[in-house]
Every structure is written in C-alpha cells, then in structure tokens.
Write a protein that binds this DNA or RNA. Sequence first.
DNA 1: TGTCTGCTGGAACGATCGTTCCATGCGGCG
DNA 2: CGCCGCATGGAACGATCGTTCCAGCAGACA
Lengths: 222, 222
Amino acid sequence: MERSFQQTLGGGTAVAPADTRARVIRAAAELFAARGFAGTSISAIREASGTRSSSIYWEFGSKEGILAAVLEDAATRWHEHAFSEARRIDAECTADGPARLTAFLEALADALAARPEFLRLLLLLALERRDVDARSLQAIRNVRQRAVEDLAQFFIESGIAANLRPGLDLMELARGSLAFFDGSFIAAQIDPETTDLRRAFSLVRLGFAAFVRDTHHGGDDA
Amino acid sequence: MERSFQQTLGGGTAVAPADTRARVIRAAAELFAARGFAGTSISAIREASGTRSSSIYWEFGSKEGILAAVLEDAATRWHEHAFSEARRIDAECTADGPARLTAFLEALADALAARPEFLRLLLLLALERRDVDARSLQAIRNVRQRAVEDLAQFFIESGIAANLRPGLDLMELARGSLAFFDGSFIAAQIDPETTDLRRAFSLVRLGFAAFVRDTHHGGDDA
DNA sequence: TGTCTGCTGGAACGATCGTTCCATGCGGCG
DNA sequence: CGCCGCATGGAACGATCGTTCCAGCAGACA
C-alpha cells in the first residue's frame, strides 16, 4: 500500500522518512538522466540510494510514482538553480542591451554545464516517453513553457524586445532561443570535447541582432 | 551462433534472408525511435516484424547487433532522404542568397516532418546510451559530422559563406544551425500542435543576416 | 539422389524485471 | 507499560527479459 499523498505535515512522524525519500529521488534522478526510465531498474535505484525495495514502494507506490516525484522535484530545483542564478547575475549587471544579454547567456550556459542532469532528464524523458505517459509529458511541457515565459520576460526587461521586427512574435523568439539552447546542450552531450556551451550560447546574442531593428550602437565584438 | 558479417554476396543463399533482415531492421528502428533501446524488447521486435527470436539472433547475434544494423541502415537512408531531397530541391532553385536558403530550409523541414523516426532515433539514443555503448555513439557522431559538413558545403555553394563576419568559423555556423534544427525538432516532438517546423526553420534564415556582412539587397520579408 | 549448409520453428534456459507480502522494529500516546 | 501505526528488512511472487539449444526443412552442389 502506498503512503498518503500528503507529506506528513505537522503530525508526529515516527521515523524520518524524508531521508529515504530524498535519497531515492536523488539517486533515481541521476539514473533516469543517465540511462532513461526503461533502462533504470528498481534494483539499481535501491543500490544507489541504499534503501530497500519495500521502502521505495511504500513511499512512491510504483516506478511511475518515482518518476513523478523526480520530475516534480527536479522542476523546482532546476528553476531555482538555473534561472534564478542567471537572474541573480543579471541583477548585478549594470549594463543594458547586448552586454546584459551576454552576461545572462553565459550565466545560463554555466548553470547548465554545472548541473546537466536536469536538462538531460527532461529531454531524454520527453523523447523516450512521448506516447507512453501523458502525465510526465505534461510536466515536461509545463517546465518548458515556464522557461519560455522567463526568457520572454528577460527580453522585455533587458530592452531587447522593445524594438522587434514587425511580424515576429516575442514568444516565438523565446521559443526559438530555447530550441537553440536545447540543441546546443545536446551537441555538448554528444561530443563534449568539441563543444563549448558558453561559446555556443553566445551565438544567440549575435543572432539577435537580426531580429531587432538597429537602434543600439553596433556592438560587434567577436 | 551469428551468421558471417559479410552479407552473403554472390554465393548461393538458400532461403531469402534479406526479407527477415529488412523487416527486423524496419520494425526495430520504429520501436527504438519510439521507446528507446532499453524500452524495446526482443519480443516486441519479434511480433512487429513477424519473425522468430532464433532468426533474429541468427541474423544479428545480439540486441546490440540489431542496434548497430539499425543505425547503419538509418544513417544511409537518412542521408539519401533528407539531404539529397533538400539538395534536389536546391538544384531546381534558380535564385541565390536568402531565397535559395529559404527553399533549402523548408525542404529540410519537410523532410524531417515526413520521416521523423530517424532524427528521433538519433537524439534518443545519443541521450540514452551516452555512457553505455561507445560504438553506437560513434556512429551517431559520424552522422552528425557529415550533416555539419553538408551544411557547410551548402553555405559555400549558395554564397552565404562568402562574406562571413571575421572571427566566425564556417563550421561553427554549421554546428549552430544543426543545434537549432535539433532543438526545434525536439520542440515539435514535445508539443506538436504548437510548433511549426517550417516556420521554426525559417528563423534560421533571419538569424543568418546577423552573421554575414550586408552585401545582398535587404530581403526583409516576414 | 544423398549430403551439406543456411535458416527457421518452437521450446526452454537462468537472470532480472516490477511488485507484493508479512514479520519485525520503533517511535508517539494513552 | 502496552497499544497503535508508520516504516523497514528480507524473502518471495509471477512475468518477462535477452539468449541458447536443437530438431527439421529447403535449396545448392556433388
């Protein structure tokens, strides 16, 4: 039987279950990101987390339950790590326009390079479980939608979106940027030694010059 | 025991094994692309291809052998389909510069949309089996490298690469384009109803305006 | 025609899969 | 202290996994 969905708030918890839960989620996230959902066995999660199968099933109910918990945890963790980190660096940036965009892109690339597990998990599961599980796919869609909105918000705040080409949607620009980020990240995963994520991300900045009307003062460094 | 690695050339083949081989490769390719390698069982391949396990193991030796054959077959098939198709349309195009680039990008997007299994297979396996099988990963790297070279070749022929910004490598531009293609394709896989691949690919054309010095005559349609 | 070789049909192998069961331990509460 | 309920340890479940074995059949070659 599965434990209640509520995370034992307030009431007297007998033994600390948070340890088990957190350890399983961490181990499962790494394994899922590395080998995929189908390629990860409960035994592997059990060994990596130092728990027993019965505890895992008590906490999560099924393998799908582990995946749901992992996705939920990773989504919040990712958002706190990557975007908040990029926004924090952005807040320190006094410049505006291209220079500010550069700092933001580099911060994003560094955050991705430092903790690649989440984006790996996201993309791998999106491809692997496309027609399998609607719930996990929806969770992935939500994370991506939020990333697009955050990007659009940054474009507005940094003044890039102020003078877009006519006929070019801001959301479309954000989606395109996200697509380029994803593709560059995958390229870095496939051959890591020949791909520099920071350098790749900086290409976006150059590309942006084509989408805004020329009002800023050039800024054409390499 | 596995059959000889050579594909029974010239010698008298008793019963036609090509049927079995082709059917297994086709079925396995679809299943791998949809569910991943670990998520696809021999039983599923056996049922989808209408063969028996013993025939599969006689032909391919192991599940890894199936994967190797699928990748090899898909690589050539992909290159014939997508890039040759795009080049064929390109050969019919009398224009040059941005218009020619547009036709090429749309042809590429259509080819991807018409047969998405291969790129799905490529990206899924690249993420799923990154630290598992070096051989299949190398095959994937080869396909991508060839795609980058083909892109670069097209950039040269269509006159786009003639006047690149200083400090910007042609190969880097081709790799960036490939990354954007991959990311857009994944976006189309995750939420197909809100993503138009042709439209997304056409963004590349706009972005290119930023990477070449302005010599052509504008060309700023939506 | 007889033999040889290539390939198939069908059953089976041990291992591992996800999952369940139950006895046991260990808190909090009366 | 004794009861209760959450959580664990350990063993086991049937199903399915990838793989193997072998008898049998159909052309090729003599």
